[in-house]
């Protein structure tokens, strides 16, 4: 069983990386970009039967810092 964890900065938390990417896209002539936010994708290969609670605990205890980040879990068959 696999799970993909998407970690993103909360709204209102400054994202200098996203800003730099935005700036670079502008430089390449892509003028229609309103905003860029960069995040992380973490792929977990899990033992079958790993509970949702355990995956959620992994996110809260380590993968995301919930002071500044949100996370979304996507289970892949």
């Amino acid at each position: 069983m696999k799970a993909r964890i998407f970690v993103t900065l909360k709204g209102g938390v400054l994202d200098p990386q996203g800003k730099a990417i935005h700036h670079a896209l502008d430089g390449l002539g892509f003028g229609g970009v309103n905003d860029v936010r960069a995040g992380k994708l973490i792929e977990l290969d899990l033992a079958d039967g790993t509970s949702d609670e355990d995956i959620d605990a992994m996110c809260r205890k380590l993968l995301a810092n919930t002071v500044i980040e949100n996370y979304r879990i996507e289970k892949v068959a």
């Binding site: 400054l14 990386q17 730099a20 500044i68």
Partner: peptide, 17 residues
Amino acid sequence: LTETGLLPGALLRNAGG
């Protein structure tokens, strides 16, 4: 210490990059 929870808040990438 912030990641441990001994102090509140977090330290983000410097604003200027």
